[in-house]
Each structure stands twice: as C-alpha cells, then as structure tokens.
Design a protein around this nucleic acid. Sequence first.
RNA 1: GCCCUUGUAGCUCAGCUGGUAGAGCAAUUGAUUUGUAAUCAAUAGGUCCGCGGUUCGAAUCCGUGCGGGGGCACCA
Length: 638
Amino acid sequence: MPKITLPDGNNLEFSKAVSGLEVAEKISKSLAKQAMVISVDDELKDLNFLIEKDCRLKIFTAKNEEGLDTIRHDTAHILAMAVQELFPGTQVTIGPVIDNGFYYDFARKDPFTEEDLKKIENKMREIVDRDETTKREVWDRDKAINHFRKKGEIYKAELIESIPKGEEVSIYFHGDWHDLCRGPHLTSTGKIGKFFKLTKVSGAYWRGDSKNEMLQRIYGTSWATQKDLDEHLKRLEEAEKRDHRKLGKEMNLFHFREESPGAVFWHEKGWILFQKLIDYMRMKQNIAGYKEINTPEVLDRTLWEKSGHWEKFGANMYTSTTPDEKVFAIKPMNCPGCIEVFNQGLKSYKDLPLKMSEFGKVHRYEPSGALHGLLRVRAFTQDDAHIFCTEDQITEECLVVTNLILEIYKDLGFENVILKYSDRPELRVGDDRVWDKAESALLKAVKATKLEYSINKGEGAFYGPKIEFVLRDAIGRDWQCGTLQVDFNLPGRLGATYVDKDGTKKVPVMLHRALFGSLERFIGILIENYAGKFPFWISPIQTVVIPISEDFEDYSNKVSKKIKEAGMSSIVDLKNHNLNYKIREHSLAKIPILVICGKKEVDTNSVTIRRLDSSKQENMKLDLFLKTFSALNKVSSN
RNA sequence: GCCCUUGUAGCUCAGCUGGUAGAGCAAUUGAUUUGUAAUCAAUAGGUCCGCGGUUCGAAUCCGUGCGGGGGCACCA
C-alpha cells in the first residue's frame, strides 16, 4: 500500500507496488512520455523501479539536470555497446557523465581513428533505432566477478572487486549486451534520441593513475534536442575563435618557438599590454601600502635547501652549474629572495604588517604535456608580494588582500569571483600543530569574505594552506588566477625575525599573494575574455589615424601627435591603400578607435571617428575628442 | 612524462597511390589619391621541422629526435 508524496505535497495512494512509470502515467500521459528517471527519497532510480513502500517521489524529464544526465549516461553505454559490436575484443571500463557530455574508457590494442568515431556514431544511431529494452538484474558479487573474468573483461572484474561488500552489484542489459552499472538508465535505447556527437579520442590512465596502463578514451556530447546540441557545438566554435594562441598570432602580440618551449617571445604590442598591467598593478599596490623590491633570478643551491624548495620542489627547478663548480637554481618562486630582503636590518612589531611586492620572473620546469599557450608556461612573471605580519593580523590581512583582488578583477572586467581553499598536502614542511594554526586562520578569512568557496583537500603549497581566486569570463568559463597563502614555515627556516613589544625576537608569519597570478596567464585570459577586443585603456594600440588621401597626411600627423601628447597611443596609416581597405584592416586588428582625416576635418579642425564594431561615423572637434578619450583612458572610467 | 594526432612561403592552406613544390592574403615595385570592411598590375619569396634509412629518385614511405594540437597525469 505505498503512499507516494510528490514534490508539490500531494499524495498518491496505490493498492499495490507500482513503478515510477505507472505513477507518471497516473499523473499525466505527457509526463509519462517525457519521464526519464525518478528519485525515491532523493535516490535516483530507473523509471521501472518498483515502489513498494511510502516515499517521496520526483519524476525527472530531459529538462531536469537529472534527466539530461541520464540521457548522457545512456549515451555512454550505447557508445560502449557500439564499440564492442564493431571491435570485438575491446574491453569496457568506465563511462561517466561529465559537463555537457560523457566519456567512455576502453582497453584495446589498436588506436581508434577519426574514421572509427564516425563508424561508431553510426552504429550508435542504429542501436537507438533498434530500441532495445533495458533490463536490470542484481547479481551475486562472485558470480559477477567470474562472469566478467571469463568474458575477458578484466577491468570490469576489478571494478566489481572494489565495490564494498554489502553493496548491490547491478547489471544492466540492453538486449544481450550487458554491463556492470550503478544506474539508473532509461527504459530503452530508443529513449536517448539522436542528439549526440562523438567529439574526440584521447589517452587516459586506468583509474586516473599515471603508474597504470593507458586506456583509450572517447569523449562525446549528448543533449535532449537537436537545438541544444547545435547550440553547444556553436559555443565550442565561439570559444575556439577566442583562443588566445590564435588571436595572439593574428594580433601580433607574442609567439612561441622551439628553442624555448613554454616561454613567451613578447612582441611590441603584447609587451605594451604587459607593461600596462604592471603599471596598473603598481599603482594599486602603491595605494595599498606595498613596497616594491626586486631580487636575483639565480640563487645558490644552499638557500633552496634551507627553504625546503630543493627537496620538495626540486623536480620542477632549473639548475645551473657554473665554471667554478657551484650549483645555482633559477628561482621558481620569489619568496626566499623576499625574505632575504626582509632580513636586512632589524624589524620591529611596529613595521608589521610589512608588505613587499615584486614583479618577479620565475622559471618552473613543467611537464611538456602541460604546456598550453600563455595559460601554462615554464617562465612567467608573477605580481607577487609577501606580507610579514603577526598571527593576530592574518585574518584581517587576508581580507584586505581579498578586497584588493576583487577591486582589480572588477577594473579588468571580471565581476564573478569564487574561492578555492586548499589545505595541507602530503609533501610538506613544518609540523602539524603549525598547520592547524595556519589552516584555521585562513579558513576564517575565507568565511569572512562571504564569497562562495569550495575546499580542495590536500592541495595546499608545501609551506602552507592557500586560497585561489577563480574568475568567470564573458562566456562562462572559470579561470584560476590569484592566490593567497598563509605560511608559518619559510620565515622561520630562513631566519626572519622581528622585535616584539617585550623586546624578544619573534618569527613573523608570511602571507604569499599574487593577484593576477602570472602576468602571462592573466593576459591569456584577458584575450579570451574580450576576444581580443580590449577595453580602450589597456588596448595596445588605441587609435589609428587614417588620412583620406595624401593631401591630408600633415593634418593626420598633427592629430596623431596630439593624441600621443594626451597620453594615448596612436599610429598614422600612410600606406598607399584606399579608405575601405584601411578600415577593414584595422578593424580586423581590433583597433578600438579609427580616426579619419579628410578635407572636412581639416576645414573644421575636427576628426571623424569610427569605434570598433560600429559603422557609425562620429565627427567631433579635435579638442573634444582628446578630452573625451583621455577620460576614457583612465581605469576608473571603465 | 603518457596516448593519439600534427609540422609545406611571413600567415592560412593545397600538393591523389613516391618523379626535388603551388594558391590566396601579406611583402616589394609601379600605376591609382581614394569618405567608412579587400583598387589594379608586376616582382620576389621555400634546407617541404632536424637527423638517419628504403629507393634510380622522398614533401610524400620507414625509424628517430624536437616542436605544435587534443586529452590523461601534473599544476608544488
């Protein structure tokens, strides 16, 4: 006699056990048709799940996340089915749902090719057309293990072995094909629809461990409607257009080359951008009371041994042996150098908090496969700073840093920021009592920011816990940028002290923080966020002055000079091309303002401007133009 | 680092199953002096990523190294 409570609070009573589908039918025909999956007391179940006792029931369609995820999960299964039909002997492993789709990992000797993907996709559609009914069975553990072992599915057998004893081992059938799976699944293969696409093949380690063998992963995307699928593919295309590597080349900002993988060759325009960001950050940090310093790039091995980097970070460090047989390391971090500056001269508690900033270029040997344009490099410049303070000051200082970061991100067009808090990693220095202190002080600050945060267990730096600032860009992607770390370890290891009120020497706590994180990376993110169309104030070339014909070159030169005198950048295009050509060329180069000078302008001492992405012509007196755009050239105007 | 894939002119790319390279744009020169997204013509431009091998002959096939891309692992 199950009594079923629906989300709207209404109850339905049945005289005998009913399936989720039957309940849906009772509610409405259309719901029954659209239903994908149900939850019974918040636990997801198949539509055919037999409800025997009182419960809370929700019915999900493709419009719900639960329904869509089930479609994706089923698509992954059908992918596995198709692969095993086409390539007998291929072993199946796992096939979970991910953002926007799913993947499935296979064990097979020969690699899958792009053509194979097409074949598999066609086979998948065939299986959808076959509309095979789904059947769920619960098997005995040992029976299941033996069954899959005998089939040659050693990975599956291993998976079942790792299911905790006492948990159900459920096997799902689509026709004869069957697979170990927790479920839930749709009632038949026809229910999935055909709004899926296999997107890429790649390698992936079994159980995500690089010590294990590599499997072949096929990625796919799957949706409830053709429209959703098309929109998703369009979004991917859109993201590709913004790729900073592509735009960096097109806009002549930077390049990479074989001689130094993962290190940027900045061209003039990119370097202007880089310098503008540094100028801006320097201005903000001056106001916030930071003192800028600079420390050597190459430092003796003994310093890195003392700091702990040699042991804990050595695998990522570049080293150099000099002709006199000394070993130096190229700095992978700025902190030891900064502490050495702190150590010069006596410091008093009255000096704390002491904030020392450094635009330090660091080198880290990253695995070759990790490199990715400006976003993951081996040599980069941090907008680094170290704040020496007392324990009591930690939380307050963390809050001050957070506010500064939010202000800066906002100026650069990012309003949406979340935090990631990471606590002690396995590989670390310092004892656990110290870590307890550091973690609780930082977590307190995290909570005080009132921002949304997540916790990453075990992902802190080797010397202290950290928070990372993640910003969301114009097309909804998340990027990790700034970082803030509490460090009770390094100052002590490198002998930093201050004289406290009572006249004794104490070891300060150090906060490490970088707001952009890496200038290189941040510029990559900026390029993608703005699709190369930077706000006026950071645009590397702000104006191009175009004379209508040779007769107006003098006037154009004069206008360009005035623009530069007003603090903006400007070039004059004197090439032998017509106006249309130049408009097109500079628009494609994403110049924010084109300044056109012809007879009319000379006669009235004015300019006609054309803003990027607008075909409107705006004529204005030269003075007004200079005034208007000088104002726009200030950060606060954005 | 691992799996797959890829490397031709400054850029984007073509070059079928082996017969030492082509286009468009850009560049240079000349003509044209242009009013809001490509004026016309001519010229020049390549160690086909490096190194080995197979072959009478290699951009093309094989091996290897390096780089790029997509993932995995890594992101301290």
